[in-house]
Design a protein around this nucleic acid. Structure first.
Lengths: 346, 346
DNA sequence: ATGAAAGCGCTAACAC
DNA sequence: GTGTTAGCGCTTTCAT
């Protein structure tokens, strides 16, 4: 490994000089060497190594108008992001895909509502080529900001627009929440269960409402008392289960909109002496192994490939960057498959 | 808000023209406007707004040699980073401090050991002004990489060198683990407990060994059977507690090296019919509110300001960046205070 | 296939 | 105070 001569990083000029070629040729070699004769390629390559040359990123960006970086925007209400394995897996996926394409991940945490300005300025400043964001709120300002900044963006989770017409406007990656929910409820039905309750997630998240819709697809005439709303947390799952038990003591199955709530429900069920799955069959959603495999009994749940979704988001964005000049239309939403994982709780 | 004329972002040149001044003056105004007469400042400011001008980052970096970005490096074994509230809080703190100084956070996730090369190239490429990294492993290559890249770095947690002499080489921020542990054990002593056990963390993390050292400071002659080793997880806390109970049924207090292990220990204690704190007093470490406040009884624990540590890391780095040209020496390590928080478990 | 030269958008001496 | 000018390091026509 070459010694770095503290301070004075070698420039392309230096490489060219050392290799006895022009800067242009040196540049060509550094960028793949297409159309340069092998002996020269060899010479330049050696010079690069000897000098420990690393291209200056700013200079390159200035002329190419490509930064090789992508922003990942995380809204403040998503503070839980880092504690929620869901997001961490998604970020892993994104990171892997970006890395594979030599693209950097710039993390933009919104500390508060006033931060949208800062983000807007940043995005407009040409720091990044594109942006990735998660679970937009109702009429979230982010899409408008990226549009104004003129950079492409891909979203994780179906945006929650108040205008349904806007849905097609932005590209997003989402799991087949509705289909997964349908599969879960049908499975419970096939088990012979007749009083199937649902612990739904918060009404303002599409993943929650889609799962609720899936439940209703299968059980259009379900007793409304069989539906309780939670907040995707274990504690809220406990509360919802208690409610449900009170309202419908005769229930014989529960489909919870995520594993965390299912784990809470399980705790309450056991406390009240209901055997799982004997008396009450229980199905979750997400298949977060840290949760679903750790409960007693382990959770039957709907699995989605979260890391894969993250990778897909990044891939979609990168593809968009490549086609950008072609003025390609925003890619269609991508819905990833879900599968039912049978364990012991149902 | 000005319409963006898709594609053609206005340059400083355009601003200057519109304001009827030279590019230099426009630049001065954009950068604070020191030494420019108010009327001109006003004119330029208006032009900036009307045009929706945002400085081109690459151009600026090219001449100033400052990127306004800092890398946060997260090693692969730290995959748990995102699920561990410890790291998430630290990152929050870092993000806040960086944002306050108009500096961006570039996230570098190491996907595997081979990734060190990629990181090294990135850091050498002048993408960032400095780097932040966490809990270095024994003889971690990161410090060498940043040194070779010629960029300053600050670490979170005392590095685990095999050469003690190296300790002073790198600046780091760490909690007063040893002092906090001492306080916890003394508190237990003051409660009148005489058989105080310790559930230690993994031997290869300085935070764990420092806490063990603190325990030993107070109890130099403690029965070795009173010490069990866990892995900072709840499950390992359960295992360690079971061990301890078997070896020393007469123990009357436990100091666990973190809250997660304390919560596991608590579970086992209750299972075996030991009243907490009646029969066995229990103290944790970290004060992760999601855990410590949620147990029954709530955990007495040693609190450290994790977000503050993150902020401190960023501040130290930024300060280093400012003094860089002055060839200032690496700042000394900073040890942040810990405080005992009394709840009900001891 | 290679080189010469222009210029990306900005800041910082240096003159005035 | 303000304008003029010279690059920062690189890619990319355009000649050759």
């Amino acid at each position: 490994m070459p010694e770095s001569l503290a301070g004075a990083r070698p420039t392309l000029e230096a490489v060219a000089a050392r290799a006895g070629v022009s800067r242009a040729t040196a540049s060509r070699v550094v960028n793949g060497g297409a159309g340069v004769r092998p002996p020269l390629v060899e010479k330049v390559t050696r010079a690069v190594e000897e000098l420990g040359y690393v291209p200056n990123h700013a200079a390159r960006t200035l002329v190419t108008r490509r930064t090789g970086a992508v922003a990942v925007i995380i809204a403040e209400p998503e503070i839980r992001i880092f504690s929620d394995p869901f997001f961490s897996q998604q970020i892993r996926g994104i990171s892997k895909e970006l890395t594979a394409h030599d693209t950097q991940l710039v993390l933009l945490l919104l500390e508060g509502p006033g931060d949208y300005d800062r983000i807007a300025r940043y995005l407009a400043g040409g720091h990044v080529d594109g942006a990735l964001a998660f679970s937009l709120h109702t009429d979230d300002p982010i899409p408008a900001i990226t549009r104004r900044a003129g950079i492409p963006a891909v979203y994780g989770g179906r945006p929650n627009w108040s205008e349904p017409a806007e849905h097609r406007t932005v590209p997003y990656v989402d799991a087949d929440n509705r289909g997964g929910a349908r599969a879960a409820v049908r499975y419970l039905e096939d088990l012979g269960r007749r009083r199937i309750a649902h612990i739904a997630g918060p009404r303002d998240q599409t993943s929650a409402t889609d799962r609720l819709d899936g439940y209703r697809d299968v059980l259009p005439d379900a007793d409304p008392a069989l539906i309780a709303e939670g907040a995707f947390t274990a504690a809220s799952g406990e509360r919802a289960m208690a409610e449900l038990l009170e309202r419908c003591p005769d229930l014989d199955a529960v489909f919870a909109a995520n594993d965390l709530m299912a784990s809470g429900a399980l705790r309450v069920l056991k406390e009240r002496g209901r055997a799982v799955p004997g008396d009450v069959a229980l199905v979750g959603f997400d298949d977060m192994d840290a949760i679903a495999e750790g409960t007693d009994p382990p959770l039957t749940t709907v699995r989605q490939d979260i890391e894969g979704q993250g990778r897909l988001m990044a891939r979609l964005l990168l593809r968009g960057l490549d086609h950008e000049r072609a003025g390609a239309p925003a890619p269609d939403p991508v819905i990833t498959a879900t599968t039912l994982v049978r364990r012991a709780s149902a």
